[in-house]
Design a binder for these strands. Structure first.
Lengths: 224, 224
DNA sequence: AGGGTACTACGTGCTGCTACGTATTTTTTA
DNA sequence: TAAAAAATACGTAGCAGCACGTAGTACCCT
């Protein structure tokens, strides 16, 4: 009975590591070694293996899993774990913190999201947090989440300028290093007209010169 | 004199680890610990720090570097190392093996390319290979290379022009829509000098104007 | 019929990029 | 230490891009 209380109180947190990169697995083991309350009881290099091991190790309270794995992805594995062992906490481990990925993990029931840039301290803190029923996000991840909330709001305020067909046509010829005169001859219009279109493009995109215009075109995929 | 022969023969290979992920650094250290001839003498978590450490550790023969780092990318660092310490061998470490990335590393003078899925055996083999003047590629990477052999052939035929540090610096300021005068004031040099650099950039890249130059810079990832 | 938008076009003037030639100093490499 | 490469700098000149203002024509939608 006091054994049960012992394990629930979290004096020792049993972990399962899931990562297909031996050097990362080894690195995490090494980082957690000095922490007496964190114990890696098993490690898997694939999603399928992880599910097997969970059956064999019922003491596991937290699964630390890499998002980028061949075969079953980390997100899929997170879903499977929540379905089969709802009590187990999933802490995602990733190189990236783009909004889409973070959102996916949260949907799949992940309890936390730590970047691979995390220090020993941050990693062990994160594990204890999720094991204790709370959640944890690396600073950059949290920033991403907050930032995307703001962008979502400001996206409505600032709509992208409307580039007309003709303007786009001229923009593409500019990108091919043609001069205004060349463009005019190619399109059978006056050089002055080309200049006007060019000016309108600069105004609409708020660029100072072609330099910015070209980058705008590339960023907004206006070229072929 | 026998000391020199000793170090050249490679009885012990000194390594510099570069990775911004503590857990990976720790994992690699741990994996290499049982290998008596491989010694990690320093580790950096950024490109800038790596360059500093190379000055302080002249015994380093092989740099093991992660490709995905914030700030200076792994490829940039490889270029910088080749420029400053041509004798040092660079072994790239990456999650991915897409053709573009592998090709970039080779262009930048990388001696080998190992995936992060590598085992202890593979990693130490790779290090010994590159230290011995040979090269090493993980199987998947080699497959990628063979698959795109025709592209590899054309890469050698048409070598990319060498953009110097200063030129790159100026190119970045141009991309930010600064005028020659502004750039000159920012870098504390004459406007004429900026013009010269600009002209050299146009000549080297065979571009007609900034329009092409900006696209060249983006395609070759010369901007931040 | 009227209002909005896109495309067309002109004039004037200024600034900045680009061409071409040349040359010194510093740093790196052989 | 000599040779090569990089970074620095000047002069002359021309054209292209850009600012700013203005305006006619065609088409679509209400």
């Amino acid at each position: 009975m006091h054994m049960s209380a012992f394990s629930v109180s979290g004096a020792v947190i049993d972990l399962l590591l899931v990562d297909d990169h031996p050097m990362i697995v080894e690195g995490i083991r090494q980082m957690l070694l000095p922490e007496p309350d964190l114990r890696v009881v098993a490690q898997a290099h694939s999603g399928a293996q992880a599910l097997e091991l969970l059956g064999a190790h019922p003491s596991v309270r937290v699964v630390l899993l890499d998002l980028s794995m061949p075969g079953m992805s980390g997100v899929e594995l997170a879903r499977a774990i929540r379905a089969d062992w709802p009590a187990i906490r999933v802490l995602a481990l990733s190189m990236f913190h783009d909004h889409a990925t973070v959102a996916e993990v949260l949907e799949a029931g992940g309890a936390g999201y730590v970047l691979k840039t995390a220090s020993r301290t941050e990693l062990s803190t994160a594990i204890r947090q999720v094991a204790g029923g709370r959640s944890y996000f690396s600073q950059d991840v949290a920033d991403t989440l907050l930032q995307n909330l703001q962008i979502g709001a400001s996206l409505e305020a600032e709509r992208p300028p409307v580039i007309t067909r003709r303007e786009r046509e001229i923009l593409q010829l500019i990108a091919r290093e043609h001069s205004n005169l060349e463009i005019a001859e190619a399109l059978f219009i006056s050089e002055r007209t080309v200049e006007t279109h060019r000016r309108n493009l600069l105004t609409k995109t708020k660029c100072k010169s072609v330099v910015g215009l070209i980058q705008y075109a590339i960023r907004h995929k206006l070229l072929d």
